[in-house]
Amino acid sequence: MNTFKPVFTAIALAFVAVAAAPSARAGDSLLMQRVQQEKGMSLPTKGMSMADVERRFGAPTSRLDARGGGSHKQPVINRWMYPGYIVYFEKSHVIHTVLNTPAGNNTNPQNPK
């Protein structure tokens, strides 16, 4: 009976798990920092109307072209840019506010990579 192959596979899997762990912890740490940062900020909240957002936070620096709207399952999504964050609206109500990340993956949504 050859027991070498299962032992080798177990060792290889353990090595991969250990090697991947530091990057997962670093990513978790960055996510936790971002959540804490968001909690300390005054940002538009889910359900606010466009008028409420503009009244409370002022005019956006830019209003991006609407997306979607082709069907009931794909409602119109509007995006307003503010310094440091983007507000996403379904039709005319906030569905999410996203901070611009240091990695820059949402700093220029007009020009997706």
Rank of each mutant, 00 (worst) to 15 (best):
M1Y: 01
N2C: 02
T3Y: 10
T3E: 06
F4Q: 15
K5N: 06
V7E: 04
V7F: 10
F8E: 07
T9M: 13
A10K: 10
A10E: 03
I11N: 05
A12G: 08
A12H: 06
A14W: 08
A14F: 12
A14R: 03
V16C: 14
A17Y: 08
A19T: 10
A19E: 11
A21D: 12
A21W: 15
A21R: 14
P22V: 09
P22Y: 06
S23V: 13
A24H: 11
R25V: 15
R25F: 15
R25H: 14
G27M: 12
G27A: 15
G27H: 10
D28N: 15
D28Q: 14
S29Q: 13
L30Q: 14
L31Q: 15
M32T: 13
R34I: 06
R34C: 02
V35D: 11
V35Q: 10
E38C: 02
E38D: 03
K39W: 01
G40D: 13
S42F: 02
P44N: 10
K46W: 03
K46C: 05
G47H: 04
G47W: 02
G47Y: 06
G47A: 07
G47K: 04
A51E: 12
D52V: 00
D52K: 08
D52W: 00
V53M: 03
V53T: 02
E54I: 09
R55I: 00
R55C: 00
R55L: 02
R55M: 00
F57W: 10
F57N: 05
F57Q: 04
G58P: 04
A59F: 00
P60K: 05
P60L: 06
S62V: 07
S62R: 13
R63D: 04
D65S: 12
A66F: 01
H72F: 12
H72E: 15
P75C: 09
P75R: 08
P75T: 10
V76Y: 04
I77F: 09
N78G: 07
R79E: 09
R79K: 12
R79N: 00
W80I: 03
M81V: 11
Y82N: 07
Y82L: 04
P83A: 02
P83V: 01
P83N: 08
Y85W: 03
I86N: 13
V87E: 01
F89L: 13
E90Y: 03
E90R: 14
K91S: 08
H93L: 01
H93N: 06
V94H: 02
V94C: 05
H96L: 13
H96R: 15
T97L: 05
T97M: 02
V98S: 14
N100G: 09
N100D: 12
T101L: 13
A103P: 01
A103H: 08
G104N: 10
N106W: 08
T107C: 11
T107W: 01
T107E: 09
P109M: 05
P109L: 14
P109I: 04
P109Y: 01
Q110N: 09
Q110S: 09
Q110W: 00
N111R: 09
P112S: 07
P112N: 05
K113S: 07
K113H: 09
K113E: 10
